[in-house]
Design a binder for these strands. Sequence first.
DNA 1: CGAAAGATTGAGGTGGCTCAAACGGCGTGG
DNA 2: CCACGCCGTTTGAGCCACCTCAATCTTTCG
Lengths: 255, 255
Amino acid sequence: MPPSLTAENMPVRPRRLVIAGMEGCTNCSVCEVRANGICSALRDDELERLARAAVRITVPPGHIFIEEGSRATDFFNITGGTVKLFKSLPDGRRQITGFVSIGHFLGLAVSDRYAFGAEAIDQVKLCRFSRPKLDSLTEEFPRMERRLLSEAANELVAAQDQMLLLGRKTARERVSSFLYGQLENHYGDVIPADARISFPMTRADIADFLGLTVETVSRTLSGLRRDGLVTMNAGHTISVPSPARLRAIAQGEEG
Amino acid sequence: MPPSLTAENMPVRPRRLVIAGMEGCTNCSVCEVRANGICSALRDDELERLARAAVRITVPPGHIFIEEGSRATDFFNITGGTVKLFKSLPDGRRQITGFVSIGHFLGLAVSDRYAFGAEAIDQVKLCRFSRPKLDSLTEEFPRMERRLLSEAANELVAAQDQMLLLGRKTARERVSSFLYGQLENHYGDVIPADARISFPMTRADIADFLGLTVETVSRTLSGLRRDGLVTMNAGHTISVPSPARLRAIAQGEEG
DNA sequence: CGAAAGATTGAGGTGGCTCAAACGGCGTGG
DNA sequence: CCACGCCGTTTGAGCCACCTCAATCTTTCG
């Protein structure tokens, strides 16, 4: 059993700390996302009550575990893997509104139905809470509600950034923004020169996230490579010699 | 996700319930947004404490009262008028992330700085709370925190809709979505045939909201008029004979 | 090793942008 | 009361960034 992890002695950024063989575990005090999940706001004794409300499940790649417009019966906390959230139009056009991974919650709904769909990109592990259970839990633990509010505020800021991207940025700026965002996810606020990213999403996912086509994403990446801004080891692993230059492009600071 | 974010306790649509001559009033129990503002979650005795923390101010049209990136010292509740929220790029490109009016809050920030700017479109009235004051208030009134969470959840849903619009909709669909949204704001869920909207924002505002240019917005409106979908009385007042058809276009259901 | 999915590249088309001009309402001042 | 100027809106003409369609190449995985 790992030492007790409190909010104070843990870093803020998500870690790739994934403990194998936890599938059947319902003891939240040793949960791998204790440090970042919604549970991070709780004390050990409170966690025990939480554990009874949570069910840990595993979702295979490509599986849609939240259907757009279906009844919002559950609430999820991601404990491993990466999920894409999306909205679609009747003719199949799709917009990915965000990628969420370890430590983040999922299932905030205004009405009794989900306004978005959720699909596992790779093998995804998550904690499921039934909505009524969660309601009574937040009732009991105000600190958890505060945690949810701060998480929602974060999502809102990210959503506003994405609106600026989708409404006003060029393809080159969008792709650079995406790559830089991946760098931030991985390294936090201090990104070293010659950084490397590895991400699970396909070009099609990236295109649907950036409001572009696969071809444009591919061409734009090739362009960045030609300009020495990135080097591509494999399709899903990219090196960035100068993150600062990439950031400048992402923010529209280049000629 | 949110605790009680069930249909029953969700905020209803904003009402045009505006009581004149309240400018100097600091008694929240008779406040015109009592029904929809963040205060709506509070009892009368709690409101009295709230009143001491609030300052009512008036902002003239065109005035930017939140500067992008400035210190997030205050939190606002809009009691009259319409505000545009925006983000900009260094070269002046601008994206309006939302229009907020009576009853909505403003100023939720993740860091110690605002990630967006806010500008009054018409004459705007608002309640200002200092951040520390608000913090102690939410500490004291958990119900208020819950209210903020539900409001944030609503904003998040709207933001996701807007991302779909910006990333995947045509100009015609975007303009139709905007107009239909205005109808919803005004009428709520039940929109009568032959509905009329009147909005304060200029074509430039609409363009920056929809990720288009002024010219495209204008041309698209002309197109909708040519097709009998809208009739324009004055530039800022538009009639919609068949809201259902407009909605169909907005959602990409037309050929 | 082979099939299928994903990624890249090319050629050509187009929706929305840019540049430009004209129009209209409204407040101001003569 | 009208002339003027300002600002927002509309309309036109031409262009370009990104999309569409299509072929080829690469990676993945049974």
